[in-house]
Structures are given as C-alpha cells and as structure tokens.
Computed example of a mutant assay.
Amino acid sequence: MSDFPLIAYKVLTAPQMAQLETNGVFKGAPIDLADGYIHLSTEAQLTETVDKHFAGQTDLHVVAVDLAVLGDAVKWEPSRGGQLFPHIYADLPLNAAVAYGPLGRGTDGRVKLPAAS
C-alpha cells in the first residue's frame, strides 16, 4: 500500500456513528452491505463523495480510518471515473478510527477533516 494514502474516510449518519461508538464496530451502511464491502474515500475524493451520495442529508459524521490497522482487508478498486477507492472487506472497528467528528465544510466548500483528539 505504499503508493496509497494511509488514512481514508468514511461518512456515517448519526445513528451509524452511534453504532460505531457503542458497539466498537461498524458493519456497514445499506449500500456497503449490498456491495459486500465498506466504501471509503481518500481525502481528495471525500467532498465529491459527500456531494454525490449524501446530498441534502444533515447530521453526518466523518471518520478518519487508519488503513494499516485493517491490513489485507483493504482493497483499492476502481470506481467513479476509474479512480481507485479504498474498500474494506471486513467490519470497521473503532480502534481503526484515528479521528472522527461531525461533518463540516470550509469556506471553500470542501469537507473538513476530523481532528485527532
């Protein structure tokens, strides 16, 4: 994975974020369960992902995921426009989350990354 980012991002609804915090694991959103893997985005892909798949939704959260913790469960696969996206072929454990928080946007409209605590 040396050519790929070490951190990727998952957008969660408030109930999904509560599930991750309460259960210590997130098994996937309906689209993840249907596709058989958990969809993530790189920093460069995150704003477009939110705009495309979460338009009009509020009370969203962003989780920064340390891909190294997930090891071989992470596969980089082509998706939107042939871009490679990180997919997790396993549950997302809370211990892989290096930071998370409510989704916010900067003055340029880009999604702000969660700050590590």
Rank of each mutant, 00 (worst) to 15 (best):
E21Y: 11
R80S: 12
E48K: 10
A34G: 13
F26Y: 10
E43C: 13
L67S: 07
A55D: 07
L84R: 14
A116P: 15
V50T: 08
P5H: 04
L20A: 09
A68I: 02
H39P: 03
K52S: 07
R80A: 12
D108N: 14
D51Y: 06
N23R: 11
D3H: 06
V63N: 06
G109F: 03
K52M: 00
A116N: 15
L40S: 13
K75C: 00
V63P: 11
R110L: 10
H87M: 06
L94T: 01
Q16K: 05
A96I: 03
H39Q: 09
F26A: 05
Y89R: 09
V25C: 08
P30R: 14
A29N: 13
A55L: 07
L6M: 03
D91G: 10
Q57S: 12
E21L: 15
V50P: 04
F26D: 02
L84Y: 11
V63L: 09
L94C: 06
H87S: 09
S2V: 11
S2G: 10
G28P: 09
A68T: 09
W76N: 05
Q83L: 08
I7C: 03
G101V: 08
A29M: 12
L103P: 11
Q57R: 15
V62T: 05
A68P: 02
L60T: 13
Q83V: 02
V111P: 07
V74E: 13
W76R: 00
Q83H: 06
F54Y: 15
D72N: 14
T58R: 12
M17K: 14
M17N: 13
N23H: 10
A18E: 14
G101Y: 07
T58A: 08
I38S: 01
L12V: 07
T107S: 05
D32S: 12
T58E: 10
T47W: 01
L113Y: 12
A99C: 03
G36W: 03
P102H: 12
L12A: 10
G106F: 05
V69K: 15
